Amino acid sequence: MNRARTLAVAVVVPCLLATVAAGTATGADVPAPAAAPAARPSVPHCVTMDGSDLNELYGVKYRIIGPSTCRTAVQGEKWVRTVSPWFTAPGAAGAVYPEGYRPSRPDPIDDFNSKFVSATYIQDRGTAQEKSITFKRKEVLRTGFVDPTSGLSYSAAVSPPLKSLAVGLHTSTVLFTLKAEHCDGLGTVREENCLPAGTFLWAVDTPFEVVPRPGQPAGS
């Protein structure tokens, strides 16, 4: 043990013992240490049909709304929206593109990341309750992932925590904005392998439900 730390312990421990002994001798009560606040219970993780734990994968501590297995939020709790990721060829070697397309970065996933501008989240699109919020690339884009089965690279948009909604049924729509056309390096068909410049729909009117907190009526 470090010598300075050993000396400090040698001095402090006898002092503590003397203090406790004095309190016992005089009948004084020694106050019990304050109880630590109860930890907030962790939310159930979002596990996809293929067994992927999205909370673990993306490092999210909030309830996730996105895949068909994760469509329930809880009243009063913030939640996070995920959508299907974008896959590309693993690198420049072997990447193929539609005629005339020239990527801005050698690796297709870097080309996508460099052109990604923002993601827009619309709640209850087309209703009187419609609200939308846009987050810039640095706030939502997660990258550096490789699919273990296919070996493809991918990036995913993961929203910051969103405000709780009223109890009941809702929808969530997600739009992406790119500053230029991007192609994934996996094929030569623009309609299948490329994303356009500008803003476009990525996930349309995904339904989900907000339920009351356990033991609390829906209207409270």
Rank of each mutant, 00 (worst) to 15 (best):
Q75P: 04
G76T: 04
E77N: 14
K78N: 12
K78E: 14
W79H: 15
T82P: 09
T82L: 06
T82M: 02
T82H: 13
V83F: 04
V83S: 14
W86N: 15
W86Y: 12
A89R: 09
P90E: 00
P90W: 00
P90F: 00
G91P: 15
A92C: 03
A92W: 03
A93L: 15
A93C: 01
G94N: 13
G94A: 07
A95K: 12
V96M: 03
Y97I: 10
Y97S: 09
P98Q: 08
P98E: 11
E99Y: 02
G100N: 09
G100L: 07
Y101K: 07
R102E: 13
P103Y: 05
P103A: 08
S104G: 11
R105Q: 10
R105T: 00
P106N: 13
P106L: 11
P106W: 11
P106Y: 09
D107C: 02
P108S: 07
I109R: 07
D110I: 00
D111G: 01
F112S: 01
S114E: 10
K115N: 03
K115W: 03
F116S: 04
V117W: 05
V117P: 04
V117T: 09
V117Y: 05
S118L: 00
S118M: 01
Y121R: 02
I122W: 09
Q123N: 14
Q123H: 15
Q123T: 11
D124Q: 02
R125P: 00
G126Q: 06
T127G: 12
A128E: 13
Q129F: 10
Q129L: 06
E130Y: 03
E130D: 09
S132N: 12
T134Q: 11
T134W: 08
F135W: 12
F135S: 02
K136H: 13
R137F: 00
R137W: 00
L141P: 00
L141T: 03
T143H: 08
F145H: 14
P148H: 13
T149Y: 07
T149V: 09
S150R: 09
G151T: 12
L152S: 10
L152T: 02
Y154N: 07
Y154A: 06
Y154Q: 06
Y154T: 02
S155A: 15
V158M: 06
P160E: 10
P160G: 10
P161I: 04
L162A: 14
L162V: 08
S164M: 05
L165A: 15
L165F: 08
L165R: 14
A166D: 10
A166P: 11
T171F: 01
S172P: 00
S172E: 15
S172K: 09
V174Y: 03
L175A: 08
L175D: 15
F176W: 14
F176S: 08
T177N: 11
K179E: 11
A180M: 01
A180S: 14
E181M: 08
C183V: 08
C183W: 03
D184H: 06
G185C: 04
L186N: 13
L186C: 05
L186F: 08
G187T: 03
G187F: 01
T188I: 10
T188W: 11
T188Y: 08
T188R: 15
V189L: 06
V189F: 01
R190Q: 05
E191S: 15
E191W: 01
E191Q: 15
E192F: 04
N193S: 12
C194F: 10
L195I: 05
P196K: 01
P196Y: 00
A197F: 02
T199G: 08
T199F: 05
F200G: 03
